[in-house]
């Protein structure tokens, strides 16, 4: 969820320009400056991919580009770190959210 309440700890912020990105073909709202991970989490999506061996679900963990758990496909480039990749208008994001192949 995008934070709506403001307080001393999290004072008011205006987001960037509205734009649209496609997540597995479905268009969703996003704002310039947001990361791919932020947009997915705002959509309530926690599972970004499944592992190669155990098909175990994975999502954001370190949030700073170091753990490689948040990998998604962006505009046909595979294994992109969602937590450090900003969105762009018209971006196509593919996630691997289904446990069965």
């Amino acid at each position: 969820m995008r934070i709506k309440v403001t307080s001393k700890l999290l004072p008011e912020v205006r987001r960037g320009k509205p734009l649209r990105v496609a997540v597995n073909g479905k268009w969703v709202d996003a704002y310039a400056g947001e990361t791919v991970a932020a947009v997915l989490l705002a959509e309530g999506i926690q599972v970004f991919r499944h592992t190669a061996r155990a098909r175990a679900p994975r999502g954001v963990y370190c949030g700073m580009g170091l753990c490689y758990e948040c990998l998604v496909t962006v505009d046909e480039v595979r294994a992109v770190r969602a937590c450090v990749t900003p969105v762009a208008d018209g971006m196509r994001i593919e996630i691997d959210a289904e446990p069965a192949l």
Binding site: M1, R2, I3, L10, V13, R15, E34, T35, A37, A38, L41, A42, Q46, V47, F48, A56, P57, R58, G59, V60, Y61, C62, G63, M64, E69, C83
Partner: peptide, 20 residues
Amino acid sequence: TLPGVLTCGAALTLLKNQRI
């Protein structure tokens, strides 16, 4: 390793920087 387990750093960046 379950989605939904985040580090403090990840949570703070999402909250303070991304406002998520």
